[in-house]
Design a protein around this nucleic acid. Structure first.
Lengths: 186, 186, 186, 186
DNA sequence: GATGAATGAGACTTCATTCAT
DNA sequence: TATGAATGAAGTCTCATTCAT
C-alpha cells in the first residue's frame, strides 16, 4: 500500500522499449516494424503501444531522448572556459554519434517523419545556440553563422557512412572542411 | 523499313510515368505507393509495372535519369575556360535542384534504397571528378579534396529546406560556408 | 502453474482455419484465395497469415494433418491379426476419403505443390510400408509390390468422381480391379 | 483471287500456338501464363487470343488435339487382328505419352478445368470403347470392365513420375498390376 | 491478320492498432 | 498492467483480356 511497485515495472519497461527502439531504428531505419522493436525489447507488442500510443509517438520519443542527452553534453560544454574547443568538440561528438546511422538523418529530414519530429527537433537549436554564441564571441566562428547552418552541416557529416576505415577517414576530412568554412577568413 | 508506330505510344507513357514518379517521389518521398504514381501519371498501375518490373526499378530509373541530366550539365561545364566558376556553378546547380527534396537525399543515403541505387549513384563521381580536377589545377579548390567529400557536402546543402524565403537564404549561406571550406587557405 | 488462457483462443482459431481450408481446398482445389479460406473460417485474413505464414504453409498443414489422421488409422490396423483385411480396409478407406476430391490428387502430384508437400508426403510411405509388409507375409499381396505402386494406385481410385451413385459404383469396381491386380496369381 | 494466302499464315500460327501450348502446359502445368505460351510460340500474345478467345479455349484445344491423335492411333489398332495386343498397346501408349506430365492428369481432373474440358474428354470413351469390346470378345479383359474404369486406371499410371530410371521402372510395374487386374481370373 | 502496350481485378503478404484474456 | 492474437487496410505484383497501331 505504501510504495507503488507496478509503476516501477512500467517505468523499466518504458526504458527498455526506448532503448531497443533506438538501437533498432538507428541500425535499420524507422521502417522496422513495431513488432520487431517489441521483440528486441523483450516485451509484448501490447506493452509498446501502452507506453507509446502510436508508432510515431515512439519514434519521436526515441529522438527526443537522444536530443536530451545531446543537450546534457552541450550544457556541460557551455560551462567550459574554451568556447572554441567546446563547439568543435560538440559538433564532432554529434557527427560521431550520428555517423552512418540512417535513422538520424532520416529523423531530421524524412518527409514522413517531419511533422512527427518537429517538437523534438526544436531542442537542438536551444543547446547549439548557446555554444555558438560563445564561440562567436571569441572569434572561433564567423559572426554571420547561425544555428540552422550548423544543423544542416552536421547532418552532412552524419550521413557519411563510416563502417569502413575509409568511411571514418572521409568523415574526418568532411568535418575539417566544414570547420574551415565556419572559421573567420583571416 | 521506317519505324514502328506502337513504340511511340509506349515511349510516351514511359516518360510520363518517369516524370510523374520523379515529381511524386521528390515531393513526398519514395514511399508513396505505385498506385499513386500511376494515378498521377494518368495510366493504369499495370502500365507502370510493365515499364518498371519492380518499384525498386522505378526508383532507380527516376534517379538515374536525374543523374544523367546532371551529367549533361557537367559535361558542358567541363568545357568551360573558367574551371573555378564551373565547379561553383555545378555545385550550386545541384544544390538548387535538390534543395528541400527529401527524395534526393533519401535516394543517396537510405538504407533501404542503397543497393537499388548503387548503379545510378556511380554516375555522379565520374562527372564530378573531371570538374574537381580542373578546379584544383587552377587552385580554386584545395588539392586534398576528393569527390566523396563533395558529394557528402552537396547532400548537406540539398537537405536545407527552401520552401520559404528564409530557406532559400539559409541554403545560400550554407553553400557559402561549404565553398569557403573547400577553398585553399591563403 | 496452470495454463495460459489466451492460448485456447488461438488454438481454436488455428483449428478453424485448418478445417475451413481442408474443406475449401478439397472441394474447389488449392487455388482458392486465402481470403476465401478466411471468410469460410469466420476469421480475418490476418489471422490466417498469423497461423500460417504463407499460403504454401497452409496447404502443407492441411495435408499433413490429413496424413496424420491416416497414419493413426493405419497404426490401429497394423495391430490387427488379419493383415489381409487390414490393408484392403486401409486402401479402401483412403480411396473413400479422397474420392472425387481434386485437392487430394493435386496435393500429391501438382508441379506447383510438389516441393511444398514433400515433407508431408513422406509420412504416407511409412504407414503403408508396415501394412504392406504384413500383407505380403500372409500372401495377400504379391511379393514384388512396393509402396510407390500402392500410392500410385490409390491416387487412381481417389480420382474417380463419386458424387453420383454411378460414381460410387465405379469407384468400387476400380478398387476391385486394383485389388485383383495386387493379389498373387494362383 | 484464287488461293487465300492469309488463311495459310493464320493456320500456321494456330498450329504453332497449339504446339507451344501443349509443350508448355505439359511440362509446367496449365497455370503458366498465356504470355509465356505466346513467347514460346514465337508470336505476339494478341495472336494467341485471336485464335483462342480465352485461355480456357486454348487449354481445351490442346487436349482435344491430343485426344484426336490418340483416337487416330486407336483407329489403327482397332483394325488389328490381335485385339488383346491392341488394347495393351494402346493403354501402354497412353501411359507412356502422359507419363509424369502433370498437365495430363490435371486436364482430366482439375476442378478448374473440369467444365472446360468436358467436350474434349468425351472423345476418349468412343475410341476406347471399340478396343475394349474387341478385347473382351477374345477374353483378354474381364467382361465386367467398362470404359470409365479404363480411363481411371490409365490416369493412375500417367501420374507416376518417370523422369528418373526408377520412375520408368515403377510405371512399368504399376502398368503390369493394372493389366493383371483387368484380365479374367483363371 | 499480327502485334504488344494498356488495363484493372485480384492474389499474397505486411503491419499499425485494438482488445480479450 | 502485460500479453499477443485478431483485424483489415494498403502495398506490391501478376495476368487474362482488350484495343490502338
Amino acid at each position: 500500500m505504501t510504495a507503488r511497485a507496478p509503476r516501477a515495472d512500467a517505468l523499466r519497461n518504458r526504458s527498455r522499449v526506448l532503448a531497443a527502439a533506438e538501437q533498432v531504428f538507428v541500425a535499420r531505419g524507422t521502417s522496422v516494424s513495431t513488432e520487431e522493436v517489441a521483440r528486441s525489447a523483450g516485451v509484448g507488442i501490447g506493452t509498446v503501444f501502452r507506453h507509446f500510443p502510436t508508432k510515431a509517438a515512439l519514434i519521436e520519443a526515441v529522438f527526443r531522448e537522444r536530443l536530451r542527452r545531446f543537450g546534457e553534453e552541450a550544457d556541460q560544454l557551455v560551462a567550459s572556459d574554451d568556447p572554441a574547443a567546446a563547439i568543435w568538440t560538440f559538433l564532432s561528438r554529434v557527427a560521431e554519434v550520428a555517423a552512418g546511422k540512417q535513422a538520424w538523418a532520416d529523423a531530421f529530414t524524412s518527409a514522413n517523419l517531419h511533422d512527427v519530429l518537429t517538437p523534438a527537433r526544436e531542442q537542438l537549436p536551444r543547446v547549439l545556440g548557446a555554444l555558438l554564441a560563445r564561440a562567436q564571441q571569441v572569434g572561433a566562428i564567423r559572426a554571420d553563422v547561425t544555428v540552422p547552418e550548423l544543423i544542416a552541416l552536421m547532418l552532412a557529416v552524419a550521413r557519411v557512412p563510416d563502417e569502413t576505415p575509409e568511411g571514418t577517414a572521409l568523415r574526418a576530412r568532411v568535418l575539417a572542411i566544414v570547420f574551415d568554412g565556419l572559421r573567420p577568413r583571416p
